[in-house]
């Protein structure tokens, strides 16, 4: 909501400063939005299908396994291919934590969820091209694995 308060105030300030410039700002906003709209539509469609194939309960089942390393690998793949806003992902992680899922597994899941976006790739590709999209996502995947290992070390879950 505060986004629209800021946007509203910004338009107001801009109007007071210069009517013509504000008009062209809104034109640019509309043009850019329409231009990227197909990529967003593709992402929403992919998300709608993946959310059906991998609902929260299925993800919980996968993460709750016995072997911590298999858990980390599974978690990082699930985190990469699913899409979940933070206000769902973190409460879910909190529940899983209480059920005994390791911090390391949760770190792999939430970090890949945030950083690696297979489903957001259509948008990323439209702006930055295929090569950069792949490079950035692969790098992010490895950063997430390193984060998971460090969390595991600090919480005494490995060694």
């Amino acid at each position: 909501m505060y986004l629209y308060i800021i946007a509203g105030l910004a338009i107001l300030a801009s109007l007071l400063a210069n009517r013509e410039r504000t008009r062209s700002a809104l034109k640019i906003a509309a043009k850019r939005f329409l231009h990227i709209f197909p990529a967003f539509l593709t992402m929403i469609i992919l998300v709608s299908i993946i959310l059906f194939l991998l609902p929260d309960e299925v993800i919980s089942d996968y993460l709750g396994g016995d072997n911590i390393f298999i858990g980390v690998i599974l978690a990082s793949f699930l985190g990469s291919i699913t899409f979940m806003p933070g206000f769902i992902a973190f409460p879910l992680s909190g529940i899983l934590l209480q059920r005994g899922v390791a911090y390391m597994v949760l770190a792999a899941f939430t970090t890949t969820l945030m950083m690696v976006g297979v489903l957001t790739a259509p948008i990323e590709k439209a702006y930055f091209g295929m090569k950069v999209t792949i490079l950035r996502n692969v790098i992010s995947f490895f950063i997430a694995l390193i984060v998971a290992v460090m969390i595991g070390l600090f919480f005494g879950e490995i060694f």
């Binding site: 986004l3 629209y4 800021i6 946007a7 910004a10 338009i11 801009s14 410039r21 504000t22 062209s24 700002a25 809104l26 034109k27 640019i28 906003a29 509309a30 850019r32 939005f33 967003f40 929403i44 469609i45 998300v47 709608s48 299908i49 959310l51 059906f52 806003p85």
Partner: peptide
């Protein structure tokens, strides 16, 4: 249902974000 709820979530954010981008480009 997933499609609708996710589209709504996007529509709550994207117009505001793009308005700010437009103002950024101009000012």
């Amino acid at each position: 249902r997933n499609f609708l709820s996710f589209s709504l979530a996007m529509l709550k954010i994207l117009p505001g974000a793009f308005i700010l981008i437009g103002l950024f480009e101009v000012w």
